[in-house]
Amino acid sequence: MSRSVPTAFFDVDETLMSAKTMLSFRTWWDTRSGGDTTWLQELLHSPSDRMEKNRAYYRRFAGVPHGLFLAAGHEWYEDHRRGPAPFVVAGLRALRRHRAADHRIVLVSGSHRACLDPIARDLGVDDVLCTELDVDEEGVLTGEIIRPMIGEAKATAVTAVLAESGTPPELCFAYGDHSSDLPLLSMVGTPMVVGEDPVLLSHARDRGWPVLPATAGPPQGSWSLLRTG
């Protein structure tokens, strides 16, 4: 059932979570399985554009049962959140404020559900808009992407959510740390820049957008506080 209430849209990597979740998860996966860990750095430093790098990343999961993939995400998150600085402190505080105000909270990320679903459950998030992966009839990942969630795709997905709920964009909030989040930030009434991306900082100066620090830290409370506010 749709709800016409103020909505807060959060990018995840380096906006809420201190890590780039896709990279952290894959490093965890390869390390646990004893697999090659050098390919990921080679991919990151390749001349390919961001979309092609994403596709190359996901093709490495071809043949993995989808259920195993999702279960591994929960294990990865449990390990990550026990670290000394798993969250972006300002982003997490903002999310808690929106929850306390009974706002709808939506994650909008180029990452995948194996990473994002446990984060969403832990932080009390209402919905997740993310890169969706192709699964064959036997429940196995094909390595291909059904829907990416980068750049303009974020704005398109958010537009659809707001149209369904009937929530005016001017009542909404968005948080992002990277220039690719600009389409998302530009479409809401209250955009919030996290960190020091030069493109976003330039827009923040020109348009008076608030800027939050990207300092990483612990949740600053018991884990139950993340779920109950």
Rank of each mutant, 00 (worst) to 15 (best):
Q220P: 00
P84F: 06
P168V: 04
A62N: 07
D102A: 14
L162E: 12
T131H: 09
M17Q: 06
P183I: 05
M149E: 13
E42C: 01
G143N: 05
W29E: 12
A62Y: 03
D102H: 15
G67S: 14
V135S: 09
I145T: 13
V188D: 09
E164S: 08
V211R: 03
G221Y: 04
T131K: 06
F87N: 07
I145D: 11
K53P: 03
D134K: 09
G229K: 00
V88S: 08
D177I: 03
G208F: 02
A114L: 05
G208Y: 02
P210F: 02
H203D: 01
V199W: 01
M149R: 07
G143A: 00
G67V: 01
D134Q: 12
F173K: 00
F69C: 09
L95C: 05
M17Y: 00
E132G: 05
S111M: 08
R32E: 14
S109H: 06
A56S: 14
G110L: 05
L68D: 15
E42T: 13
G110A: 15
E170V: 02
L162N: 08
M1A: 15
L184M: 15
R32Q: 14
D102E: 12
K20W: 08
R82Q: 14
T37D: 09
D11A: 08
G221C: 04
H45W: 03
L95H: 10
R93W: 03
I119M: 15
V199I: 13
P169T: 02
A85E: 14
M192A: 06
C130F: 01
P213L: 03
P168T: 08
S46C: 09
L23P: 00
T228M: 11
L23R: 12
P169R: 05
L44G: 09
M51L: 13
A100N: 02
G221D: 11
V89H: 04
P65N: 02
R205Q: 14
P219I: 03
A204L: 07
E138S: 13
W223E: 13
V128C: 01
L185C: 09
T31W: 01
H45Q: 14
T228G: 03
P84E: 15
V89C: 05
T37Y: 02
F9M: 05
G91N: 04
W223L: 14
I150L: 14
L16V: 10
S2E: 07
L16P: 05
P148H: 14
R147T: 13
H45T: 12
M51N: 01
S224W: 09
M149C: 15
V161W: 06
D136M: 11
D134T: 13
M51P: 00
A56Q: 14
A90E: 10
T37S: 10
T228D: 10
A114Y: 07
A160I: 00
T38F: 06
